[in-house]
Design a protein around this nucleic acid. Structure first.
Lengths: 160, 160
DNA sequence: TGATGTAGGACTATTCCGGTCCAAGATCGG
DNA sequence: CCGATCTTGGACCGGAATAGTCCTACATCA
């Protein structure tokens, strides 16, 4: 359905939280309660982020998680990817190449471009971009605005 | 997992097929067999596309489907949307607005931009763009290439 | 030593996707 | 006007993936 999973969502939220409250550390439980996320689930997600090197964990009382990297160097793409696994737009292409579905299936080529565009879009936004706390008229705006070249009517109306 | 469904995929393939073979009409069965898609399933998809005004159906012998619109005027976004339903990047925002998930959840804002970017990307490619039959060095290339401003290392390596 | 917190595996529930089946209604050819 | 062909549309099902729970083990600090 072309949406990212709640897990990825939670992961981003947590990372952002940690970025804002840096360099203090927060426990999984703490973050979970703050945003109304099931604690056990968030733990799992954070564990993954630790294994992937985004976070550093501290056991014991007053332990918790803290960022292991500069939030500027963590992209949404990386996070989503480590949590949800590889991203492909269509079944047509795998991570490394094309589908062998049918030779006739020529949709791939142009969609591939779209696919790459999305990846770049996600890679272009970092955790620190997300931490500017609301109404940020940051560079984000311009960055993404560039993509609005061929602008269509995106007025989104319910399907039938 | 941030990928579009097979249904949407099939829909695009079918539309492209019809665009290429225009103005001839093709039956669901015919298209299904050509691309190895389960016929019954494709029928359902095509039915939706009819209801949404992309296709026109003809009953009876030698009946089938044909485009109801100029393929240039049908965007991938529209198709995906009518088949898969509304697209949101995260649960945080619905079609019309923001989430009320938690006030604290401030990830939304920047992600919203990304979300819009993706939509524009999808809206910028039409069925006719997809019908240029392979190795099309069309405007698509440039269009999407523009999005490569802040280019990251997208070398995609397996997660752990 | 016990409270707190991470690590992580196993397990369950639920949703959604992909796909099938079947019955009904239109249309054309003969 | 009968039958083949094709769309329409609803009901249904199995499997996969998501979301979430539970329980145990281990680390750390007070």
């Amino acid at each position: 359905m072309l949406k990212l999973t709640k897990k990825a969502d939670y992961g981003l939220i947590a990372l952002k939280h940690l970025a804002v409250n840096s360099p203090a550390s927060s426990s999984a439980k703490e973050i979970a309660e703050t945003y109304g996320i099931p604690a056990a689930l968030l733990s799992k997600i954070l564990q993954k982020l630790v294994k992937s090197g985004f976070l550093r964990s501290e056991h014991g009382t007053n332990g918790g998680y803290k960022l292991a990297r500069d939030p500027k160097e963590i992209t949404a793409y990386e996070v989503i990817r480590t949590i949800d696994g590889p991203i492909f737009l269509t079944a047509c292409f795998t991570e490394h190449g094309y589908c062998v579905h049918t030779d006739k299936c020529t949709v791939r080529d142009p969609l591939q471009k779209v696919h790459e565009g999305i990846l770049r879009l996600l890679a272009s936004i970092s955790i620190s971009d997300m931490s500017v706390d609301s109404k940020a008229e940051s560079k984000m705006e311009d960055d993404v605005a560039k993509h609005a070249d061929r602008l269509y009517d995106l007025a989104i109306t319910p399907t039938m």
